[in-house]
Nucleic acid binder design. Structure first.
Lengths: 130, 130
DNA sequence: CCATCTATATGCAGCCTGCACCTAGATGAT
DNA sequence: ATCATCTAGGTGCAGGCTGCATATAGATGG
């Protein structure tokens, strides 16, 4: 049966933080080497339980991290199952994670500016009895 | 001269909230009728000053809001300049704004889960003297 | 008449995503 | 041995959003 594991959720309107999986993977890799299939499980425990990631996205992000020099990979045999492509974060990858955190903090500020605008607007709206 | 006004910024890595302009436009329209060119200015005062939106995006979002029944439009003459396509939010558009706010609140929770994971991880990382 | 401002819009390439699908080794049951 | 299933990694394609370039055109001032 095709696609029997961990697909993206119903994706109500496509509203999310673009490329948010990338910093999550960077953070997980900052904790030590890992490989795609394992990272997929760790992401779920990460807070994505309701809205799990598609495996193809994970594999593509990992490859792009390597292409950009933020991670290295090697093939490794596990205790069981097929061989795994194990990724490790590079020093540039560490710095990239820092950049991501700064960016997400900025995103957070923008979000809260929106909420404050929204609450402000709704208060005025109600006090005008409109 | 081509494209001489209000272009997207250098867009460091494409990290942002997807379709975030949409709720901002919804909120502005919730305050009353307006048109593309004016909304573009209001967005800048909204918190986008550093990272202004591209006008083509604004016009396309406004059209899509109308296509989806969240807004209506009419042509109107202004005190000066060419005619304007003036948009007004529909009741469905009001509800759509509410949905967006809920979604952004969820996004905010996800973001903070990330920050807390990050801080947690970094504390352990340092206390291990690694 | 011409440059500039206001205003709306389209075409295109690029990026990211989600879905469908493929390959293949390992494992356990029959 | 064979077969289903799990683990593991991957590709192809379509669709959505964005940014940039560009087109069009009315209004305005010199």
């Amino acid at each position: 049966m095709p696609g029997r594991r961990r697909r993206g959720a119903q994706n109500r309107c496509g509203r999310r933080i673009t490329r948010f999986l990338e910093p999550c993977l960077l953070l997980l890799l900052h904790g030590g080497e890992s490989y795609g299939y394992e990272l997929l499980d760790n992401l779920e425990r990460f807070g994505f339980s309701e809205n799990p990631a598609d495996s193809s996205t994970i594999y593509r992000i990992l490859r792009s991290l390597e292409d950009k020099g933020f991670a290295t990979s090697r093939w490794a045999e596990g205790d069981s199952g097929p061989a795994r492509r194990v990724y490790a974060l590079s020093p540039a990858g560490d710095r990239y994670l820092q950049m991501w955190v700064s960016d997400l903090e900025e995103t957070d500020r923008i979000l809260h500016r929106f909420f404050s605008k929204y609450q402000n607007h709704m208060e005025l709206h109600h006090s005008n009895g409109k």
